[in-house]
Structures are given as C-alpha cells and as structure tokens.
C-alpha cells in the first residue's frame, strides 16, 4: 500500500513565549490508500488541529506534511490544486459549515467553480449533472438545489455537506466529528450513509471522533491522541480488545454500556 498522507515530526504551537499552547507535539502519522483511519481523543487533544494540517488549512510550526508524496506544508495556496481536489472535508456542525445565504445547489457545486479545481482531470465539468448525481447519492430530493439550508433538518444538512465533499470526486474524505452535532436519532443514518459511500467509491477515510463506538463500527485502524501526541495506534479490533495505554483504557471504559436486553 502507498501512503496518501505522511506527517513527519509535525508540531503545531499556538501563541508565543510563555503563553505557548501545544496543539500537536512531534506527530508521525501515515494514512494508507484505501484505509479507514479513526482518530480518537478528548476535546483539546489536537484532533481538529491534525485534520487542518492534513487538509492544508493550517501550517505546521515544525515538521512536514505530504499528500501523495508531495510536500503540502508551507506551499502557497495556488499550488495546492491537487490537494484540494483529492481531499474533501465534512465538518462537525452543518449549521455552521453551510452558508445560510446560499442555495443548496450553489453550496454543493462550489468546489466545481474553484479555479484551482476546474479543468483538472476527474473534476466534473457539468455542474447541474453532478449536482443531481450527488444529491441522489446522499439521498436528498432532486429539487433540493433550489432551497436554502435552513429549510432542511440537521441530518439532511449533513447530507448536503457530504454531497459538497463528494462533488469534485475526491479520493480522501476527512470527517471531523460529523455526527456529534446531530440528533441521536439520525446519527446512525448518517454514519451508515458515510460507510456506504466510502465503500462504493473506494475512498480513503480519516474519521475524527470522540465516540469510540462509531469508530469501531467504521474504521479499520485507529490512532489515539492525547494532549497533542499519538499515544497508541493499531488495528481497531486489536486496540479495542487489548488497549496498551492507560489513557486508551480509560477512554474505552468511559463508553456507556447498555444492559443486555436478553
């Protein structure tokens, strides 16, 4: 397998001098093609920082990030077309990730209008056709494009965000706590949809969550973040069965268990 992402001794510090806050501390991470990597940890453990660095939305203070073997950290935005096409993100809260003043059709086709993406091989040219395609894939009505985000429920809005992410035919999908802002009743629907889409389209998935049950369901490998460091990593089944680190053990113990109904 080849790596889509490699992060080599990456640190991200916020602030300066005595007020420095460590976001990430000397992280080494490889994401292989076709794998589903779960990144778990508490809030403040550096999960969001990590995906921002992977997606080229932030720069590491030290170290380097590569996508497809090409350096992305420290490169100017106009050279990042290959990254922008290859990697798309689904954010945590669709109330904030969808512009309330844009129509859903314009939101979903925004990637296709980007000068960085337009004309790259694989990026759909016919915006209307692609819109209809992705709307169907995420299970939204065909006339959704003419409406505004506030006319949709939380679960539907996250489907809109998913449709936008799929529009430029990315190879990697990064999901940042995609269901934690949703009603419990629709979480499993969105998770299953995500699961199906990743399988159908052979996507590489980086799934960030503090919900270990969802990660077990979705991911084949897991990395555990604590205070900006990866403290444990491995196959999901193994880590869940025999956690080596006390931190991982405490995370797993914190998962609420329902009494067996039988």
């Amino acid at each position: 397998m080849t790596s889509v992402f490699t992060a080599t001794s990456v640190s991200r510090l916020y602030g300066a001098g005595r007020n420095t806050v460590v976001g990430l501390d000397e992280i080494n991470l490889a994401v292989e093609t076709g794998e589903r990597l779960g990144v778990v940890g508490e809030s403040g453990s550096g999960k969001s920082t990590l995906i921002r660095l992977l997606a080229g939305l932030d720069r590491p203070t030290r170290g380097e990030v590569r996508f497809d073997g090409e350096l992305i950290s420290g490169r100017p935005e106009h050279q990042l077309g290959f990254l922008r096409q290859g990697v798309q993100i689904v954010f945590q809260d669709p109330r904030s990730s969808l512009n309330p003043r844009m129509r859903v059709g314009d939101i979903i086709t925004e990637p296709l209008r980007s000068p960085l993406l337009r004309g790259r091989p694989g990026v759909p040219v016919d915006k209307a056709a692609r819109l209809a395609e992705v709307l169907e894939q995420v299970g939204l009505p065909t006339d959704s494009g003419r409406r505004h985000p506030h006319e949709f429920s939380g679960g539907q809005r996250q489907r809109i965000a998913l449709a936008r992410a799929l529009a430029p035919r990315p190879r990697v999908l990064i999901a940042d706590e995609p269901v934690s802002a949703l009603d419990v009743s629709v979480r499993s629907q969105v998770i299953n949809l995500l699961n199906d889409l990743v399988a159908e389209q052979d996507l590489t998935l980086v799934f960030v969550s503090h919900d270990l049950t969802v990660v077990r369901h979705l991911c084949d490998r897991v990395a555990v973040l604590q205070s900006g460091r990866i403290v444990e990593r491995g196959l999901t089944a193994e880590v869940y069965a025999e956690p080596q680190e006390p931190y991982t053990q405490s995370l797993l113990e914190a998962v609420p268990r329902l009494p067996d109904p039988s």
């Binding site: 997606a55 922008r84 993100i89 945590q92 809260d93 990730s97 969808l98 512009n99």
Partner: peptide
Amino acid sequence: QDYVLAARACGT
C-alpha cells in the same frame, strides 16, 4: 465560520 473553512478546503 466553518463554511469559510469549507470554501477554502475546496479551493475557493
């Protein structure tokens, strides 16, 4: 807002 981040992430 995240929608600006999302716009940047898709090359706007």
